[in-house]
Simulated scan of single mutants.
Amino acid sequence: MPQMAPLWWLSLYYMTIMMFIIMMIMIYFNFNYKLTKKEKKKYNKFKWKW
Rank of each mutant, 00 (worst) to 15 (best):
K42T: 02
I17E: 06
M19H: 01
A5T: 07
K42Y: 07
K37E: 11
W48D: 14
M15G: 00
M19K: 02
K37H: 12
F46G: 07
K49Y: 12
F31M: 15
K42G: 05
W9H: 10
I27F: 14
L7S: 02
F29P: 03
L35A: 15
K42F: 02
N32Q: 15
M24T: 02
T36V: 12
Y28I: 10
I17D: 03
K37Q: 11
K40V: 03
Y33R: 15
N30V: 00
W9Y: 12
K47N: 07
T36F: 04
I17A: 05
F31L: 15
S11C: 06
Y13H: 05
P2W: 11
N44M: 02
K45C: 01
F46W: 14
K40G: 01
K45N: 12
I17Q: 10
W50V: 15
P6F: 01
K41Q: 01
L10E: 08
Q3F: 03
K40E: 06
F29I: 06
I22F: 05
I21M: 03
M1H: 11
M4F: 13
I21S: 08
T36Q: 09
W48Y: 15
F29C: 09
Y14R: 04
N44D: 13
I21V: 01
M15A: 04
M19E: 07
M19I: 06
W50C: 12
Y13K: 05
I25H: 09
N44W: 04
F29V: 01
M24H: 02
K38L: 11
T16R: 05
L10T: 03
L35C: 11
P6W: 03
M1S: 13
L10D: 04
K45S: 09
M24K: 03
N30C: 04
K45F: 10
T36D: 09
K49M: 12
M4G: 10
W50E: 15
T36P: 02
Y28F: 11
K40Y: 06
W48N: 14
K47A: 11
K34C: 09
A5R: 08
M24N: 09
P2D: 14
N32M: 15
L10M: 06
K38D: 08
I25P: 08
M1N: 10
S11F: 10
W8E: 05
M19Y: 02
M18G: 01
K42A: 01
I17T: 04
M4N: 12
W9E: 05
F31K: 15
N32W: 14
K45R: 14
N44T: 01
L12P: 00
Y28S: 12
I17M: 07
E39P: 00
M19G: 02
F20W: 01
K45D: 08
Y14P: 00
L7C: 01
F46Y: 14
W48H: 14
K42W: 06
Y43G: 13
M24W: 05
M26R: 11
T16N: 00
M26H: 10
Q3K: 02
P2L: 12
E39Y: 01
K40S: 00
